[in-house]
């Protein structure tokens, strides 16, 4: 459903946020708030712009809630059309304001997480390595770029932080500078990447946009969609593990503890 043109168009009327469930305690707390105390690896809800007022019940996916068949605890999941229609009905209650090219830009808590998410989505990542003094100027440059129809929704964007990303370049090949705009292709398991294009921090909007589009064109020609089952099977055989702050596991009864029938692997050691 998320891949259909109609859904993507409907999503533009919302601020879409997808948090990595196990990334940190803040995300865990938010998921518990959304799921009324439970902690599960996926959660969904529509909220008012204040971030507090729920506009729907919460569940694990939109189909469980939105649309005529999606309402009620034992109802059949809503169809794509019903979900989209319900989203439009809710969005119509709000009048968007402000200019699109003044939007807040995407960011990640860490480069490590950005690389993994870019790999999972199979999108290129634009990583900005800049001193704190340059970052705001970079944001000003990038806002209209990332609001452009040909760029929006095609890339992930991360601004490096000295606190969390000091060693980012150790996991990225083909970089020639310590600072700049780096267009990075993540590897299959999102733990390493290669810079397929890079520009200095003095680059202008049109140069950045052109580099992004050129890189995306090449990426589309050479990358193939992952197959979930074989990807995971290969990861197991290669002993891949990605450690998050929160151990893997779910708390279905909402007692504050991860259910004991599952064994969390959050203390393991990752590859790469």
């Amino acid at each position: 459903m998320f891949s259909t043109k109609e859904f993507i168009e409907a999503s533009r009327e919302f601020v879409c946020v997808r948090l990595e469930t196990f990334e940190n305690k803040e995300h865990q707390a938010l998921v518990r708030r959304i799921l009324n105390g439970r902690f599960e690896n996926t959660a969904f809800c529509l909220l008012a712009p204040d971030g507090e007022t729920p506009l729907t019940r919460s569940s694990r996916s939109p189909q469980n809630i939105l649309g005529a068949h999606g309402r009620g605890p034992s109802a059949e999941p809503g169809s794509n059309e019903e979900v989209i229609a319900a989203m439009k009905e809710i969005a119509d209650d709000y009048s968007p304001r402000g200019k699109v090219d003044e939007m807040v830009l995407q960011d990640f808590h860490s480069f490590r997480q950005a690389l993994n998410v870019a790999s999972g989505d199979q999108r290129l990542l634009l990583f900005v390595a800049a001193s704190p003094g340059d970052v705001e100027r970079c944001r000003d440059t990038l806002r209209p770029v990332f609001a452009h129809d040909e760029i929006i929704g095609r890339f992930h964007l991360d601004f490096g932080s000295a606190a969390t990303d000091a060693s980012w370049a150790e996991n990225v090949s083909d970089t020639w500078a310590k600072s700049g705009y780096f267009i990075i292709q993540a590897d299959a398991f999102g733990q390493k990447g290669k810079a397929i294009s890079q520009l200095p921090l003095t680059a202008g909007k049109s140069d950045i946009a052109k580099a992004l589009l050129d890189a995306n064109r090449l990426f589309a020609e050479t990358e193939e969609r992952k197959v979930y089952s074989s990807h995971v099977a290969e990861g197991r055989s290669e002993n891949i593990f990605f450690e998050n702050e929160i151990p893997y596991g779910e708390d279905h009864d909402g007692d504050g503890e991860v259910d004991t029938r599952r064994s969390g692997k959050g203390k393991g050691k990752g590859k790469g």
Binding site: S11, R18, L19, L47, G51, S95
Partner: peptide, 29 residues
């Protein structure tokens, strides 16, 4: 082009308040 995801709560909330758009919240691993 796909969904334009925000990947931190702070940026998403700031954008929702700025643009007065409702929030499509998901968490996933």
């Amino acid at each position: 082009a796909g969904i334009m995801w925000y990947t931190t709560w702070d940026t998403a909330l700031e954008e929702a308040k700025r643009s007065n758009r409702p929030i499509f919240f998901m968490s996933a691993a």
